[in-house]
Design a protein around this nucleic acid. Sequence first.
DNA 1: TTTACTTTGTAAGAGGCGCTAACATCGCAA
DNA 2: TTGCGATGTTAGCGCCTCTTACAAAGTAAA
Lengths: 206, 206
Amino acid sequence: MSKTRTKPYHHGDLKAALVDGAVELIVARGVRHFSLAELSRRLGVTVAAPYRHFANRDELLAAVAVRALQAFGEALAAQSTETDPPGERLAAMAGGYVRFAAEQADLFGVLFGLGLDKKKRHPELREAYEDVEGTMAACVAELCPGDPDGAEQLTDAVEATAHGYAALLTDQPGPLDPADVDRAVEQAASATRALIDGRAAFRRSR
Amino acid sequence: MSKTRTKPYHHGDLKAALVDGAVELIVARGVRHFSLAELSRRLGVTVAAPYRHFANRDELLAAVAVRALQAFGEALAAQSTETDPPGERLAAMAGGYVRFAAEQADLFGVLFGLGLDKKKRHPELREAYEDVEGTMAACVAELCPGDPDGAEQLTDAVEATAHGYAALLTDQPGPLDPADVDRAVEQAASATRALIDGRAAFRRSR
DNA sequence: TTTACTTTGTAAGAGGCGCTAACATCGCAA
DNA sequence: TTGCGATGTTAGCGCCTCTTACAAAGTAAA
């Protein structure tokens, strides 16, 4: 949105082009086969050029992850219709979590399982992810009034469950069977409802 | 168990040595930094030698995964004391799932997130994993007599939840905080109890 | 025992990768 | 105009996976 303020140097905002190109390449071929060298070739630039803008490969991937996280957050927020009761909204978000992971499997793969050091090296990623968690937590808060501790545990549980369906679904290479995706989305929503209904179990173990 | 039937050739059962060495290297340094070349050097063999026994790097990793899966299965089975009620056994298994992932993070990393093509390329892995699922399913069957469909959904949900806690916990590089691990183990068990208590929600959506 | 065959390892190298240091170029600003 | 900092290139190091051609070691039949 807000780039190309002034026509930059040789290439013309190579930094942005690198991130854009990386997203394209990753979506096209998967994170696992992404290489800085191929990206450079595509942009008509030598393999050393990216290092003027990113300290290393992981830093570029972190920039891609920020993009992915943004799309992820939007996908989740889109599931949350204000009119629905909070439980259904939460279930829909869990489903949306899984659906995003399935439909944008490669971007999802940048967010997780890549071993990016979110805590120390890329705190902006951690923050962005906490925003996503916040969207869920807001929903849960309506369900557990006056029990912030239980709310947190329920939030974690819903997140873990959605993430588990998502991770197991996308662990396999190759294209996904749409029926599998739909089933996983449904199950994640159902499991969320079950967690809500059975949430008293969290109180028992404290 | 059943190797070294006859004294083999030059090295003396290099194939087994490769798998053993790979496990050691992976446990010591993480899957992400494992290389066939370093393993070969360690075994005093040229880098080409492993290709006499494994078509490629992934095939060796699949062999390592079989080992990991065996350890994983044993860790899960150890959680299942016959005397406990099935619900508590299931909760303990979920906790064991997470604890194994945390304590053997690198072996767990070989099982998931490596993109090994379990379905097509390494069906023996898929089978072994289905055994693990079977252990859980047996437990769930006691909880849901006469409802095989609901039992399957509950099994999937418990598996996904445990896997989600495990994956989120081990996504970060570096050593884990034992307190985080204990909390995740506890929460996985609690979430399992919640799923059991709220399992009627699975029936609602069919 | 000799010969032929199979299995296992080596030597050499192609092609890829991430990353670095030294050098060249370009735009801006003093 | 000159000088400087930002950006890109050239060249190269060291690592990787994997392949091909060759050598050695065991096995088994003649």
